[in-house]
Computed example of a mutant assay.
Amino acid sequence: MTNKMIYDQASGLRRLNEPTLTKVIAVTGGKGGVGKTNVTLGMAMSMARQGKKVMVLDADLGLANVDVMLGIRPKKNLGHVLAGECELQDAITDGPLGIKIIPATSGTQSMVELSHAQHVGLIRAFGSLEEEMDVLLIDTAAGISDMVVSFARAAQDVVVVVCDEPTSITDAYALIKLLSREHQVQRFKVVANMVRSYREGRELFAKLTLVTERFLNVSIELVACIPLDDNVRQSVKKQKIVVDAFPRSPASLAISSLANKALTWPIPRTPSGHLEFFVERLLNRTEIVGEPFSE
């Protein structure tokens, strides 16, 4: 057997044993009411339609709404996990198109006041999940709480959803400032939501760019302009997501395009050095892949 044949066989075995790398995207916005959950679930459905294994974490631990928007009734949620009543695996609920949902709980003050250690424990718990995932989408809470910061910092990509309101721009800037100055997150992807035209979306992005370039050392990129679309409101009434209820509507097409783009964003091959989702899989992969096989 030649050296090349041995190397090819060893490479094949390593690929079979490599842990699956999961793309982790946090969708946030600083302000409530900007459409984060619609964007998150729309991306999830669009990705699932392409055969991707997708999980959605409802990280709005005090005012959960992913399950409500999907019209599902989970038996367990993160409240049960954090109370020690079940494992994270037990809280996974089946959603439409094969999407896996980890629901949060609503109206519980203790969930809003979790300690940093509890955030760390929850993020690390994802490393033990049995499910294979291509993408984990995190729908964060509004604001700049420790919880939002923990989940955003532990993701590979941070998507900031903004709309054309002064408070939306101000709150998005505050979030970017906090994450960059105190938590070393330097790259942000921006979604201009509920805009009346692509030009309005560009102008909205320009407003945010004006303050970030002046005061912060960050990279921000406009990745989508999602039009104002009455079909979104109609789909919410039906407890459906617009990409499912009205797949050819302007908002649906824009969200689907965003999902396609997100699937091309590279996944880091090595740990970042700070707390992150699925870091164990990256470490295991590094150990398994190692150096090229030699005699």
Rank of each mutant, 00 (worst) to 15 (best):
L41K: 09
P74K: 08
E291S: 14
D60M: 00
I25N: 00
D157T: 07
A155H: 01
K207S: 09
R73A: 09
L222Q: 12
K23G: 03
K261V: 08
S110H: 15
T170S: 15
L41N: 06
D171T: 06
K238V: 05
T37Y: 07
R153Y: 00
L97R: 13
L88F: 07
K53Q: 13
C225P: 09
H119E: 12
R15V: 06
L275S: 03
Q109A: 14
Y198H: 12
H183R: 06
V242C: 06
K207D: 01
S272W: 15
L57M: 09
S272T: 15
R233F: 08
P19L: 06
L97I: 11
M55T: 08
R14N: 11
A224V: 00
R124A: 09
A117V: 13
T270I: 13
L114S: 07
A104K: 06
T167V: 11
L21W: 01
A125Q: 14
V158A: 00
V159Y: 00
G98S: 08
T209G: 13
R15S: 11
G71T: 11
I226C: 02
G84P: 12
G51L: 14
P103D: 09
T105F: 05
F277Q: 10
K31S: 02
T2K: 11
S145I: 10
T20G: 06
L61E: 00
D58I: 03
E291M: 11
E113R: 13
G71M: 11
A206C: 09
Q118R: 14
I102F: 06
Q50L: 15
G32H: 10
D139P: 04
T140Q: 01
Q184V: 10
V68Q: 05
V191L: 06
E287G: 08
M69R: 02
G35F: 04
G95D: 03
P19N: 07
L88K: 10
L21G: 01
Q50H: 14
V158C: 02
V39N: 08
G32N: 14
N284R: 15
G12I: 11
F246R: 02
K53D: 09
V236N: 05
T40G: 02
I92K: 07
R281G: 08
G84C: 12
A91D: 07
D94R: 13
P271R: 04
R153D: 00
M133H: 13
S46V: 02
V218A: 14
P271E: 04
V39Q: 06
R181T: 15
S235C: 10
S257A: 15
D67Q: 05
N65T: 05
M45D: 07
L137S: 01
G84E: 12
P271G: 03
D171W: 06
K238M: 15
